[in-house]
Design a protein around this nucleic acid. Structure first.
Length: 1042
RNA sequence: GCCUGAGUGGUGGAAUUGGUAGACACGUUGGACUUAAAAUCCAAUGAGCAUUGCGCUCGUGCGGGUUCAAGUCCCGCCUCAGGUACCA
């Protein structure tokens, strides 16, 4: 009995708490380091082993940085608003705050058990009024700001108003909705409401009627990143498009800066790429097509294209079904068809549209536009492959060079003109023979008037120049990114600090914040379909103006929490300037990549806005980011025997064995009827059934037999399984006899207990189905059959077909989930092995950024390692045996090699190899029987980031009275690592044959000689010529012979 | 379809710049200690061949290539995972 983890861990957790060991002071003279985890949503299920993975990694890094003298900010908090608590409230009436509070308590308990070095004094909760006051405050700032493209930043709306008053909006370059030009006088003549409406088109937080993702099941609107494949991310409910008046954030104003910022952060490439795709920048031109009949729509049709070079090949146009011109331009003859089509298209759900990507639909409007370069009339179609939300909702179709346009043209027999050819010869092909479009981004223009002979790149430039000259178009950059829909028709979220006066929204004054979430009688929409907040009594301002009833979405509170941690108790401002100047931004951020298109974009946007306001001093919030991989579950399976199939299988095997099989048809079919066996000579059908089915099916068989001359014997499955020989005898008897009809002996029917077959029993898959079994009853794939019987009442009298006396389970790697019975919660493991072992093991599993399956069986290895390390310090009787004797060369080499390795592994976030290095070190020190302070003291510090309780205890036992947490990290000394000789692997023609120890500083020529002279070399040299010798010092010798 | 990333023993994984493939650990097998079990310790453990010893051959998803030397670099595929999807 040596290392008592339970006692030690409790002791040090208490010490840290009492001494506030990990409190990060705003001590501005020390170098800072900010390590952050993505804060969790506290769900009711608590933590499973996957959650702490990233926290352990960041904790190791944070502790390592403290050892290097950094003032480390390593906070934790809770993303406390969320749908599950609200859904629970709807079902049970329990206030979400109560549920959330309970869950947070459990999370805290679990987190504390693992020994994280969080500064809990800085905890934030997004649902805490003291916190969301600043979420609301930021919203007001967004509301009061507009984006000036000239200065490329957000500016106060008050300044914009001044400009309107002085010069109107003509000179304003803003990221805004489409607005008409007005003069200063016109502005002044507008009434208050008109002015407010105009300003709404400019605000960064604005109210507008837009197409939103409406999820009827959740009763709320969702942002684009909350919708996955047409279903809600939470719950997987269908989502439909709906026009609604909603708050949005003008994140599109920041699209370019969000893209550019990616260049200067150290994030995984895949994540940056995901954000780039999400932002979706494309360069091209916007131009307008005039209608052939100008009177119908004098403004023409504006389109965006990335390929203005192909304009000569634009043979038709397509409008989205929602496009406002559709109704206007459709000719009377086409009206009926087009109306029917647009109605149909608008009512299709997102999901339908997605699953039917390949089907081509559309209608001709009857109208024509004029191709501005060719002057030819091109027909205007309406089709749902053009999206109203992207570009202008209208396109010029170039079927020869765009696959979708091509498919459309083929389907509706529209003309296809090739305008780009592969080579300079301008090779012409006949597009009518093509199977697909030629989507080339390189090539030479043909059939294109003044563009002929130019490369694609040159032609794009030339075409834009021409359009600008003709004043019908201009070069333009378009983004896929949409403004973020910010309203939720939900209770459990931040209330908007907004009230309405004559239908127009106004912000509350800042001294009225926080606007607290009111009590409601039910967490459901009102009878008239208004959000739950409409149920609150007196939900209005002091003056009696009604307050906004929507609440903010989940990402509101998480968008700037990292800033609040810098100064979490400040009730005068978001955070103080000094605190922000000092902590600046997050140096290391660890979390899952599921937030790539959500939180990680929103918070970058939010931060950039605060940067523009002069509040945040860094314009990128997260300097380095690591995505920790997911820990997948390792499910175990038992194989439940299908009694009928099994009996049938046994009987067939027996028949084959008795060589009766050739007389019998297995799985006999007569029309649509199927039978287990048929003996054609004797016209006997053999059917095997379970007890329940015997009764049910007997009349059915009798019916069948009546119409044929066949006989049928019904055999209870249990008979075969329990007494095969008797059954065979019975069948043989019936075969020889001449009984007619259905032969069946009721007297013998018995019940069979549930039966399970071990994994490697031959043909198991033929007669059994896998069933998830709780992984806690399985050890090393062996099922604890007694525990299994107790698991569920229906298995109480289960029986097993074993192999070598054991029941072996199958396994599969899947998502960790309750329903798969493969959830591993950390509490049990901590109880059994301790937090330090759990920490080491989670790191030991594999690279931090990789997904990996959880399997408890390896945990013994790290547990043994800690025990083995303990024995370097203590005797069998737990007496300290550390000596002050001077360490030998070998011991020093082990230590310094380990210091070097551990340092470099932590710095490159390779925590799994770090754990291996500790194991190697302890194995080697054990072999050397090393108990020397000179070695063990630095080793203790080295281990502290990984196994802090263990290290603290050893540190104290070594005679120290202060915590180990801020002791200098050991440095390695090259001089102990120097080797006099190196064992050269000697290869012949690239194959390693033997090793030869040679002095490190031996010159190449001498190494060659020594190798050729070596005894082991002779058999490889025999009868061969040495053609070349490659010597890489301290690496390898390769002899080329031939 | 497009964009990322990954494929190495029975398992998790290591090999950092092209230089001894399989570190470390689990599991398995054998042994020691023990009345017994647990714990601990020792040995073996990629596959195949040969086992009288030396050993030999193959081997990092598949097929080619570059190189004295390829898990690592290049070309072409296959499979899996994640993201995204009429984005003009």
């Amino acid at each position: 009995m040596a290392y008592n983890h339970q006692e030690i861990e409790k002791k040090w957790q208490q010490y840290w708490r009492e001494h506030k060991t990990f409190k990060a002071e705003n001590k501005f003279d020390l170098p800072k380091y900010y390590v952050l985890d993505m804060f969790p949503y506290p769900s009711g299920a608590g933590l499973h082993v996957g959650h702490p993975l990233g926290y352990i990694a960041s904790d190791i890094y944070a502790r390592y940085k403290r050892h290097q003298g950094f003032n480390v900010l390593h906070p934790m908090g809770y993303d406390a608003y969320g749908l599950p608590a609200e859904q629970y409230a709807i079902q049970t009436g329990t206030h979400p705050e109560i549920t959330t509070g309970k869950n947070i308590k459990r999370y805290r308990q679990q987190l504390d058990q693992i020994g994280f070095s969080f500064d809990w004094d800085r905890e934030v909760r997004t649902s805490d009024p003291a916190y969301y006051k600043w979420t609301q405050w930021t919203f007001i700032q967004l509301f009061k700001s507009w984006y000036n493209k000239k200065t490329d930043k957000a500016e106060p709306i008050a300044d914009l108003i001044k400009q309107f008053e002085n010069t109107g909006n003509a000179g304003v370059e803003a990221a805004c909705d489409e607005v008409e030009i007005f003069t200063a006088d016109q502005w002044k003549q507008m009434d208050e409401k008109q002015q407010q409406e105009m300003l709404m088109h400019y605000r960064l937080a604005y109210l507008s009627k837009t197409m939103v993702n409406w999820c009827p099941a959740l009763g709320t609107v969702l942002a684009n990143d909350e919708v996955k494949e047409g279903l809600s991310e939470r719950g997987g409910h269908p989502v439909e498009r709906k026009l609604m008046k909603q708050w949005s954030l003008r994140i599109t104003a920041y699209a370019q800066r969000l893209l550019d910022g990616l260049e200067k952060v150290e994030w995984p490439d895949s994540l940056k790429e995901m954000q780039r795709n999400w932002i979706g920048r494309s360069e091209g031109a916007s131009l307008s097509f005039q209608l052939a009949d100008k009177d119908v729509a004098p403004e023409g049709i504006e389109v965006f294209t990335t390929r203005p070079d192909t304009l000569f090949g634009a043979t038709f146009m397509v409008l989205a079904p929602e496009h406002e011109l559709v109704e206007k331009i459709t000719t009377p003859e086409q009206k009926e068809e087009v109306e029917a089509y647009t109605l149909w298209a608008k009512n299709r759900s997102e999901r339908e549209r997605m699953t039917e990507v390949k089907t081509v639909t559309g209608k001709f409007t009857g109208a024509y536009a004029v191709n501005p370069l060719t002057g030819k009339n091109v027909p205007i179609w309406v089709a749902d492959y053009v999206l109203s939300g992207y570009g202008t909702g209208a396109i010029m179709a170039v079927p020869a060079h765009d696959s979708r346009d091509f498919a459309f043209a083929r389907h509706f027999e529209l003309p296809i003109i090739q305008v780009v050819a592969a080579d300079a010869e301008g090779q012409r092909e006949d597009p009518s023979q093509w199977d697909e479009s030629y989507d080339a981004k390189e090539g030479v223009l043909i059939n294109s008037g003044f563009l002929n002979g130019l490369s694609v790149k040159q032609a794009i430039r030339a075409a834009i120049d021409k359009l600008e000259e003709m004043k019908i178009g201009t070069g333009k950059i378009n983004y896929r990114l949409r403004d973020a829909i910010f309203s939720r028709q939900r209770y459990w979220g931040e209330p908007f600090p907004i009230f309405y006066k004559e239908g127009m929204p106004y912000p509350l004054s800042e001294d009225e914040l926080p606007l607290k979430l009111p009590e409601v009688d039910k967490y459901l929409p009102t009878e008239t379909g208004e959000p739950p907040l409409a149920r609150a009594k007196n939900w209005k301002t002091k003056e009696g103006y009604p307050l906004e009833t929507n609440t903010m979405p989940g990402f509101a509170g998480s968008s700037a929490y990292y800033l609040r941690y810098m100064d979490p108790h400040n009730n005068k401002e978001y955070f103080s300037k000094e605190a922000n100047q000092y902590w600046r931004n997050v140096d290391l951020y660890i979390g899952g990549d599921e937030h790539a298109a959500g939180h990680l974009i929103y918070s970058r946007f939010w931060n950039k806005f605060l940067f523009d306001l002069g509040l945040a001093c860094e314009d990128e919030p997260f300097q380095k980011l690591i995505n920790q991989g997911k820990i997948q579950g390792r499910s175990s399976f038992v194989y439940r025997v299908n009694i009928e199939k099994y009996a049938e299988y046994l009987l067939w095997e027996k028949m084959k064995h008795l060589e009766n099989a050739k007389n019998v048809v297995h799985q006999y079919k007569d029309g649509r009827r199927k039978f287990d066996f048929y003996h054609p000579d004797k016209e006997l059908i053999i059917e095997i059934k379970r007890r329940e089915n015997l009764e049910k099916l007997k009349p059915y068989y009798e019916d069948y037999i009546k119409t044929t001359n066949k006989r049928l014997i019904l055999i209870p499955a249990a008979d075969i399984i329990e007494n095969m020989d008797l059954t065979i005898a019975e069948i043989t008897q019936v075969l020889e006899a001449t009984d007619k009809g259905v032969i069946f002996n009721w007297g013998k029917v018995r019940d069979l207990k549930p039966l399970f077959v071990s994994k490697n029993i031959p043909d198991r898959e033929k007669f059994s189905t896998p069933l998830h079994v709780d992984i806690n009853m399985v050890d090393n794939d062996v099922l604890d059959t007694e525990a299994f019987k107790k698991w569920l009442p229906e298995f109480a009298d289960a029986q097993f077909i074993l192999e070598e006396g054991k029941y072996i389970c199958g396994h599969e790697v899947e998502k960790m989930s309750k329903s798969k019975h493969n959830v591993q919660n950390p509490d049990d493991l901590i109880e059994k092995y301790g937090a330090d072992t759990l920490r080491l093991y989670e790191m030991f599993l594999g690279p931090i950024e990789q997904d990996k399956p959880w399997d408890t069986k390896g945990i013994e290895g790290v547990s043994r390692f800690l025990k083995k390390m303990w024995r370097l310090y203590f005797t069998e009787d737990n007496v300290l045996q550390v000596t002050d004797e001077e360490a030998g060369e070998a011991e020093r080499k082990v230590l310094h090699k380990t210091i070097k390795k551990i340092r470099s592994d932590i710095e490159r976030f390779s925590f799994n190899t770090g754990v291996s290095a500790f194991m190697i070190c302890v194995n080697e020190l054990s072999d050397l029987k090393c108990h020397k302070r000179e070695i063990l003291k630095p080793l203790t510090i080295l281990l502290e980031p990984y196994a802090p309780h263990f290290a603290e205890e050893l540190w104290q036992k070594l005679g120290h009275t202060e915590s180990i947490s801020r002791v200098d990290f050991p440095e390695y000394n090259e001089k102990y690592l120097k080797e006099d000789s190196f064992a050269y692997p000697v290869s012949f023609n690239g194959k390693m044959r033997f090793k030869l120890a040679l002095p490190v500083n031996m010159p190449k020529e001498e190494i060659e000689k020594a190798v050729l002279a070596a005894e082991e070399a002779q058999r490889w040299l025999e009868g061969k010529t040495v053609r070349k010798i490659i010597v890489v010092p301290k690496r390898i010798v390769n002899v080329v012979v031939g």
